[in-house]
Design a protein around this nucleic acid. Structure first.
Lengths: 235, 235
DNA sequence: CCCAAAGTGGTACCTAGGTACCTGTTTATC
DNA sequence: GATAAACAGGTACCTAGGTACCACTTTGGG
């Protein structure tokens, strides 16, 4: 892509905002963007590890879920929801053994893509990137450790309350990132099934913690939600 | 520690074997070991993130479990079992937010320790370490992703069978790393409770997949175990 | 060597959460 | 705008797995 492209400033801004590239200089980003191609994914399009192993992606807008599934039972577990500034797949970038993971667009997704080899070359040209990658991986590892143990250490109701709290914007008190998602997707995020989520949403409405209108969850009572998430809520 | 120490050759050998240090030169390892102190942990001694945040550890011998727990219920989930050549805590090394994790010795544990700051300095002197750390983190992340989704995607029996298969030595057909562990600890590894493990061990004995003698599990029939792990076993 | 106390494993009972079935709601087609 | 098809959510029923209780086995102190 050349710098006279219509969306060039918007793309540069998206790259600048990425925590993955946070220590990179402007000219390095220019050089990177010049090698990239823009692509649109319609909602619900998905790829697996094979498909994305040879291309590295930056998200410009939209949401993408990263999940594993059991084809025999149809159960899914969503590990991350990625959005603006996030990248995938970091593991392929590191040349680890292929890991069968799926990526699926939750909305219309705008990505910038670059061949994996070129991305590796670019990183080697800017050694400061190694530190950035390490801290990115460290953060993700910590998140993964929590996700890994959450399912066994806490009940589904507690996990649902914690999920809502994690995604509330401090100022607007509105849900971010996970708003507008059907019960299906919420279930995947806490490692359970849709019907259990539905049941718990009824319960949370009943105790006045939330209200639901047109597929949007509104938090009504933070204190109750906190009490549930911290397992202080005696039903 | 000076190079005239009795166990010096054994320690050097342990460091050489570590995948974390695999690309390091002999003199770099000497320099590292010179700054280290040996320490023994008796079985069942444990530390949390606070305790180990300021010291970096290398395991020389023995096994160490890394786990999270819910103090309200007493449930525990073991994330990793570390042994000879493994290191902890990598996340503290990266200066990420403290993560409340516990470490507990499963046997008598021999570690080499070094102040965290000195470890950071040493790494910065040997830039090849950055790549080693990245690939170490990548591998662990992949493992964590599997652990995170296993609990929701597979039943406890399937997870137990898979755990046994993962720890069988290809040649001797004996269990490694997890042998000799009480049902308690096995339960922590697959994210369930001791009683469920006990019940499943009865079941596996009944179908002839394993036998148990003096707290040691012996795999009798790999095919049956594989069928269960791959969910092809119709009970 | 005896006894207490801690450690380990087995199992009956019960409940959290999963399956299956249903109703209502939105989107696409002619 | 009518109708089908896909999508979304609610809930009765049932089972996998957790709790609680027991019995046996090992360890350590006098």
């Amino acid at each position: 892509m050349t710098s006279d492209h219509n969306d060039y400033p918007r793309y540069i801004q998206a790259l600048q905002q990425s925590s993955f590239l946070k220590d990179s200089k402007a000219e390095a980003l220019d050089q990177l963007l010049s090698q990239m191609t823009a692509e649109q994914w319609r909602a619900k399009t998905f790829r697996n590890s094979m498909d994305v192993a040879t291309t590295f992606h930056f998200i410009v807008s939209g949401r993408l879920k990263v999940y594993k599934s059991n084809p025999d039972t149809g159960r899914e577990h969503t590990v991350f929801v990625l959005s603006k500034g996030d990248v995938f797949d970091v593991l392929s970038l590191l040349d680890t053994e292929p890991n069968d993971v799926y990526w699926e667009a939750l909305d219309t997704l705008e990505v910038l893509k670059i061949p994996m080899d070129q991305m590796r070359l670019w990183i080697n040209e800017y050694p400061v990137m190694h530190k950035a990658i390490i801290s990115y991986l460290g953060e993700r590892m910590q998140q993964l450790m929590n996700i890994a143990t959450d399912v066994t250490l806490h009940s589904t109701l507690v996990r649902l309350a914690a999920l809502l709290l994690k995604n509330i914007n401090g100022e607007t008190r509105k849900l971010e990132l996970i708003n507008n998602l059907p019960n299906d997707e919420i279930a995947g995020l806490i490692g359970t099934t849709r019907s259990v989520v539905s049941r718990h949403i009824q319960e949370l409405k009943r105790v006045g913690a939330i209200s639901v209108s047109r597929r949007k969850i509104n938090v009504k009572n933070l204190e109750v939600l906190l009490a549930i998430a911290e397992e202080k809520h005696l039903p």
